[in-house]
């Protein structure tokens, strides 16, 4: 099952990945914040739509999407 791992400690809340995901599976968290108090991102894929394309990880400038699995 394709999925990603978000390392919230690395997320600086630039949200470039949110726009990048072709399936819109990355969302701004409602409750989790980083050190600066900015909301981090979350992977939200209840219907298993993730393609494992890794576009989010390729785009992320901070290695916050630390792992991507396909298949």
């Amino acid at each position: 099952m394709s999925h990603i791992v978000v390392d919230e400690n690395r997320c600086k809340a630039c949200y470039l990945c949110v726009k990048e995901c072709p399936k819109h599976l990355i969302k701004v968290s409602k409750d989790k914040v980083n050190k600066l108090g900015n909301s981090v991102v979350e992977f939200d894929d209840p219907n298993h739509e993730c393609l494992g394309c890794a576009m989010c990880a390729t785009r992320c400038p901070d290695l916050a999407i630390s792992e991507v699995y396909r298949g």
Partner: peptide, 23 residues
């Protein structure tokens, strides 16, 4: 069985976090 298609490169220092501005 899912295969890993992205990982943090082994050449990145363990636990190193980039200190550049967001984005």
């Amino acid at each position: 069985m899912a295969t890993q298609v992205f990982k943090i490169p082994n050449t990145i220092k363990k636990d190193a976090k980039f200190t550049f501005c967001p984005g």
